[in-house]
Design a protein around this nucleic acid. Sequence first.
DNA 1: AACGAGCGCAACCGCAATGAC
DNA 2: AGTCATTGCGGTTGCGCTCGT
Length: 369
Amino acid sequence: MGRAPCCEKVGIKRGRWTAEEDQILSSYIQSNGEGSWRSLPKNAGLKRCGKSCRLRWINYLRSDLKRGNITPEEEQLVVKLHSTLGNRWSLIASQLPGRTDNEIKNYWNSHLRRKLHNFIIRKPSISHDVPAVIIKAPPTKRRPGRTSRSAMKPKTHNPKNLKMKKTPESPEPEANVAVTVVAQEALMIELNGAEAELGPCNYYGTCHEGGACGNNNNNSTDGDKGVSSFDENIIDLLLDESEPSHVFTSCGGNAELNNLGDYEQAKGSSEILNQENLDCLQSCLSMESFLNYEHQVNNAFTDEFIDWDCVWQQGYDNNICDEKEGSDSMVSWLLDGDDEATIGKSNCENFGEPLDHDEENALFAWLLS
DNA sequence: AACGAGCGCAACCGCAATGAC
DNA sequence: AGTCATTGCGGTTGCGCTCGT
């Protein structure tokens, strides 16, 4: 049996509320109090759905609402709360007096999410002596073609979509995005059958040995074969749909090649993945919460790949295999360090330590800059 | 000046949770 | 215990405004 509609659709007005309707609703609620939303429209003489009345009251007419722009302090609080609460907008809003869940949600979706994304992929190295390779797209230019809403939908993670090739549906990379790639990164690219090894270190490697990367410096022994070069042709290849390029990553000590592009095919194939590496890769790839965030802002797994390189580069890396249960936010991993299953930062010296106050502030400042 | 893509906000939709019966 | 109405929440969409071309 289907659920009865919350109200009769016939004769119900929709769309923007007029000042007159607002006045009627406000007066009624001030006289009769909140509640009984279903019967409210009829009693108040409004041609609106009860749900619509409730929404209008809660989000715009309540007297205790704060108006005006979100302040930097509020913004910082939202970022922090979201890092621990995820998309629980009502919970987050409850910590910001005068703000509504809808307001916070809209603000996050239209401001902070983009900010965070840009933070991840645009920032050059600040804390490592490893030189970053900045691949700059052409000067900022508005991309022709309107982004459809459906194209903005977050993608659900599907290993079958891991091919590092653009599909016709995939948008061009953001024109103003400077893709930052850490030179010492374990991206191994198969170019027309020839393997070009780009770096010794990768976060998938953290799957071994309880998560310590061991690869962030030159003392690494995990498949550390050094880096000689990394040029933008690599990224072009990653993004070029006409090229059958694949991305590999080494997975810790055995330095086996894991062909992400052929992940599905490689499943169970010891020729490409040994069991240990397969487990490692699967544990990484199955982290829905990890993937969720980037899927909201990216259409290409390639971006996730590179993004996380950059996070690592910043020293705010974390053990992605030690995902904090219940958290669906990347930031939580960046910030949390007091949970044994969560790593605040990692490098080879102090892996596992939480971010201290200054580092956390630095991260926030960066996020919000 | 005109056009149109992109953005931001307000509102809607559908599902889940809760409570009454 | 099961059913249904109501409320609450998060995701999504529609539309008007802004700004680049």
